[in-house]
Design a protein around this nucleic acid. Structure first.
Lengths: 202, 202
DNA sequence: ACATTTTTCTGAACGTTGTTCAATATTTTA
DNA sequence: TAAAATATTGAACAACGTTCAGAAAAATGT
């Protein structure tokens, strides 16, 4: 029952992505199969391969959606408030990141499971989506650097970001018991930020 | 062709683990299949399930081996040298970790891909293998804390360790371009350690 | 020594999966 | 209205983890 103009190419693509998103929400990443998507959108499995080269390719699109969501979270005004001190904003931003990791757990984990090995496909847009995640933290760090030290500030932002991510990741995946009875994950993120910033201020 | 006493239960188990290790070396994690292991050790696929509940269970044993190797690396005398300053030892330790991640890449990645959801199986030994990884770093941090601040020192070790891991992970998996032309990964690890320790020294 | 029980191992079979592609249905073009 | 172009199908393929009745070997009992 081919029906070429039921949906345009782009419509179909977003249908597949939205359906996938829904399926991951309900059944987790392991529940996301080509056949299930096909059934959900009312097409045959083969149709998906008309719009995506592979399931990995589809995962990339899902990751793009996740990165966009994360971008919005990190750019939220509550953690980029000029009224607050930079340190305070940073701590709130870290909390936002950790909350995001928890709320969107399977999507967030996908970001780090995907091996980007599709050489031919252009993935610069993907790298850019990742790169821009650092900009808000970089802005918050500007008081600690002279305007000329752009490279240093850039590096500091990435290092601090990666560190917070490391905390979040090891905690969230249960790899190490970071928190004891007294401290929760948020406390240790604050501790990291405090210590790092103190070190920056020399 | 059953041949019960060709190898003891324990022998078979190590045979399977060693074979798996070899296969991952040659063909990556995605090349590790029950059938390939079986062929390699000269048994039928079903035999594997006599010794491991599932492939996930086998992965756990591989991770144990990886954690043991990593433990040795972090406890190496070159990064726990009383003659050197703690800061210097830490930087060497971080380098060791990053080198390990590179050299044993697939095994190292497995550590973080595995979801530990096997409730019934006793995995406390696994947690303990992870926990003891922190002890050398904790020792190096002791000059920065009074002997009574054991909890604080413990936390500092875990936070710093998780941070270094975050750097290593995001760099190694190519998720973010941490390094620019001037800096390599090692430099930014040094930068993190310097800044963190400076912050500790207040 | 032989018969019986117990243990070990097999390998075909099941239900999945991602992926392909000749065939078919529909739309567009001539 | 016929021909060409395009979209869609769904059966088929290879490979996966996993199971389990049955076969083979060892252990035990007599």
């Amino acid at each position: 029952m081919a029906r070429r103009n039921d949906h345009s190419r782009e419509e179909l693509k977003t249908m597949i992505i939205n359906s996938s998103w829904k399926i991951v929400s309900k059944h987790g990443l392991e529940g996301l199969t080509a056949r299930r998507i096909a059934q959900d959108i009312g097409y045959a499995p083969g149709t998906i391969y008309n719009l995506f080269n592979s399931m990995e390719d589809l995962y990339l699109s899902l990751n793009a959606k996740t990165l966009d969501l994360l971008y919005d979270v990190l750019n939220d005004s509550t953690c980029n408030d000029p009224q607050k001190k930079p340190l305070q904003n940073m701590k709130i931003m870290a909390k936002h990141y950790m909350d995001f990791a928890q709320e969107y757990r399977p999507y967030w984990l996908m970001l780090f499971n995907l091996e980007i090995t599709e050489d031919r496909i252009d993935t610069t847009w993907y790298s850019e989506k990742i790169d821009r995640l650092f900009s808000p933290l970089e802005t918050l760090l500007s008081p600690y650097f002279s305007p000329k030290q752009t490279k240093k500030r850039e590096m500091a932002a990435r290092v601090l970001w990666a560190s917070i991510h490391g905390l979040c990741f090891l905690q969230e995946t249960g790899k190490i018991a970071l928190v004891s009875k007294q401290n929760n994950t948020l406390d240790i993120a604050d501790y990291l930020i405090d210590t790092f910033i103190k070190g920056l201020s020399k």
